[in-house]
Amino acid sequence: MIEVNNLHKSFGEAHILKGVTTDFEKGKTNLIIGQSGSGKTVFLKCLLGLFTPDEGYISYNGNIYNDLSPDEKRNLRQEMGMVFQGSALFDSLTVEGNVMFPLEMFTKQSKSEMQDRVNTVLKRVNLIDAHHKYPSEISGGMQKRVAIARAIVMNPKYLFCDEPNSGLDPKTAILIDNLILEITQEYDITTIINTHDMNSVMEIGEKILFLKNGHKEWEGTNKEIFKTDNKAVTDFVYSSELFKKVRQMYIEERN
């Protein structure tokens, strides 16, 4: 359970987050949606502690992040997995090396145990023949999947994904969504996903937070997002013709 209270963040003159209050439950896939530039990545980085909020606080299972000692922060971070928007794979390591990195760094497992674990997670993200390639030698979508594998290899308690399926084909995107949903439920993880993808919203949006210009404009579930009359939400969600038609059908069906 992550609670966010009145979060503010500015960069110089630019006020990016303007008092966001919300919470994210355990064992659920929480989605953050909003237009490009609305502050989703900044929000996620505040949660991760990469940015210090100017005002407000974030608590993890009741522990307020900013009150923790540096060592407690590091320990908490070892329970977090993060998929960066640009994957952020280590260039100097192979795919396998990237996924093994947290294991080598923080566990006392033997080489073969680590190898097994790496094979398992790489298989889960559908990557079986790229173990010895370098990040620059694989496609963007494959990089994303390696990043997901690296984020889940330590069985994190908190999983953060910044647009995990952007740049993926629809089929792989759905596969990744389902994978994230599965591991969230299986290991009872608190998962937070930034996304633009309306498919994800419909499929795995157990909780959706809509950010607009750094405000929380709306929150609810993927069932509720169909029904809402909030104009900003409907404008955003139904910006494509296809979804407009879906909504139309839904409303007609309801009447």
Partner: peptide, 18 residues
């Protein structure tokens, strides 16, 4: 610098690496 720009340093920090 490239690691900074491509968020690899953030990735290290998030894992709890100094």
């Amino acid at each position: 610098g490239t690691m900074r720009v491509t968020e690899q340093i953030d990735a290290l920090e998030v894992m709890g690496v100094n």
